[in-house]
């Protein structure tokens, strides 16, 4: 059997690791165990998301599950899925992914890789101590953001975004060093945010994607049946992951309620409008970086066409 190693930065229960385990199981079935993939969760091989793109290109590791935004220094297209307030809900996020998929494929192909499937995050919102349901409540709010888009958008909206490593987030919440965190209900629930935060605002900030990519030589050195099996497994996993993200969102909200967190979803149209306006310079800045490709993707998306 061919043995392959698969690197992933998240814990074994995370939506990404579970999707990856599903993929591995599909591959095992479809190839009768001839392709044996080992998932290394929690960054156990020593790689972080930021290392994955070239680690896979160089075949240091054959497959990796990578947070898209961490590859934005390689190509700005990887910021697409985390553009703030571009998509409203899972359906639109999937539509955007399908429109952009050929462009993603091209970047991976140009770098000796094959894009297998995507793994969406549950929508990011705002965890906070006091309810954040209006532009006023956002003023000077010390909020931890996870990427530069979030920092710019929230700064435009009047908040005081802070960048902190994830390890420092809980201690800072506990001591009141920060008052809010921009992240998914899921990520907050996994870290028991309710011990320090009683509100979650489902502002539908974005549904960021993780990309699962494979070294092309490793892929092409499989038999053509096995290659087809991997493609089929990837298609199934894509389907599975988009379904899973819907289910997770529902179950996450259930967990939050059990733990006494007030959920504000949807937020008022005024607030949503103000947030979208704060995001528009970020989106146009991205379009400038992307040139024609960005134009094409966004036009197709706004015209509601499916590829």
């Amino acid at each position: 059997a061919t043995r392959l190693d698969f690197s992933n930065e998240y814990n074994a229960n995370s939506i990404h690791a579970q999707g990856d385990a599903y993929f591995i199981e599909q591959v095992r079935e479809l190839t009768d165990g001839e392709v044996d993939i080992t998932l290394h969760t929690g960054g156990a091989l020593g790689f972080k998301s930021g290392d994955h793109f070239y680690a896979v290109a160089d075949n240091a590791v054959q497959i990796a599950d990578t947070l898209s935004g961490t590859m934005s220094g390689i190509d700005p297209i990887f910021l697409l899925s985390s553009l703030p307030f571009l998509v409203d809900g899972v359906d639109e996020a999937r539509q955007l992914y399908e429109i952009a998929r050929p462009y993603y494929d091209e970047v991976f192909e140009d770098n000796d890789q094959v894009l297998l499937y995507a793994s969406p995050w549950p929508a990011s919102g705002i965890w906070s101590r006091e309810a954040v349901t209006s532009s006023e409540s956002l003023q000077n709010l010390k909020i931890r953001t996870f990427d530069r888009n979030g920092t710019e958008t929230l700064r435009n909206a009047g908040a005081a975004p802070v960048s902190l490593s994830w390890a420092d987030v809980v201690p800072q919440l506990a001591t009141g060093g920060i008052n809010a965190v921009l992240t998914s209900a899921e990520a907050g629930a996994n870290a028991s945010f309710w011990e320090h935060q009683q509100h979650f605002s489902g502002i539908q900030y974005a549904i960021p994607l993780n990309m699962v990519h494979m070294n092309r030589n490793a892929f092409e050195s499989l038999s053509s049946d096995q290659q087809e099996a991997l493609r089929e497994a990837a298609r199934r996993t894509d389907e599975h992951n988009w379904q899973a993200v819907r289910e997770r969102t529902v179950s996450n909200y259930g967990t939050l309620e059990e733990n006494g967190v007030s959920i504000h979803d949807p937020v008022s149209a005024d607030f949503q409008q103000a947030l979208s306006e704060a995001a528009s310079p970020v989106i146009s800045g991205w379009q400038d970086d992307m040139g024609e490709r960005g134009q094409e993707i966004l036009e197709t998306f706004h015209n509601g066409q499916t590829p």
Partner: peptide, 12 residues
């Protein structure tokens, strides 16, 4: 800076 609601954003 954080005391005054600012950040260098590139600390880590």
């Amino acid at each position: 800076l954080r005391l005054f609601g600012h950040s260098t954003f590139i600390l880590d």
